[in-house]
Structure formats: structure tokens, C-alpha cells
């Protein structure tokens, strides 16, 4: 799953570094993720993992790192 998240970040995150080189817990906002780009990341994640992030998850913290994105998807997948 981590690889797929990295691939989505690479395609849609418009961040300043290659996600392959980012640690799982690295701060994506410090890597240049904007709130606008994060929407595209969310859309791609919803499509790829066939989940819908409920509104309570749509906040900065949840999309702050690769690890927190994985935790959110795992929670939704149950």
C-alpha cells in the first residue's frame, strides 16, 4: 500500500522531492504539499483504494504523512 500511496503522491502531490525518497513519517506539507494538491491526492486515493474519506477525516493531520494516509485508508477498509 505504501508504494501505491507514493505513486499517487508522485503523480498528484506536486511536491518538491521524489516521494520514493520520503520517509513514511516525513511531513508532506514541509515537502511542499499544498491544500489544493492534497485534494487531487485524496481523489486519486479514493479511486485507487475504493474508499470514501468521510468529512471528519478531511483535515491537515490525516494527509500529513504517508504513514497517516495509510492509517486512514486502513481504518476505512476495516
Amino acid at each position: 500500500m505504501l508504494d501505491e500511496i507514493r505513486a499517487i503522491l508522485k503523480e498528484h502531490g506536486r511536491i518538491t522531492v521524489d516521494p520514493a525518497t520520503l520517509a513514511d513519517d516525513a511531513d508532506l506539507y514541509l515537502a511542499g504539499l499544498t491544500s489544493h494538491a492534497s485534494v487531487n491526492v485524496m481523489l486519486a486515493l479514493e479511486d485507487k483504494f475504493e474508499v470514501e474519506f468521510p468529512d471528519r477525516m478531511l483535515k491537515r493531520g490525516i494527509f500529513g504523512s504517508i504513514a497517516s494516509i495509510r492509517a486512514a485508508i486502513e481504518e476505512l477498509k476495516g
Partner: peptide
């Protein structure tokens, strides 16, 4: 523009 983008993922 910001709201338009957020509404693509906001559900309720």
C-alpha cells in the same frame, strides 16, 4: 476556486 476544489471531496 478553493471551495470548488474542496467540494470535490467533501460529502456532507
Amino acid at each position: 476556486a478553493t471551495n470548488a476544489s474542496m467540494l470535490l471531496v467533501l460529502k456532507e
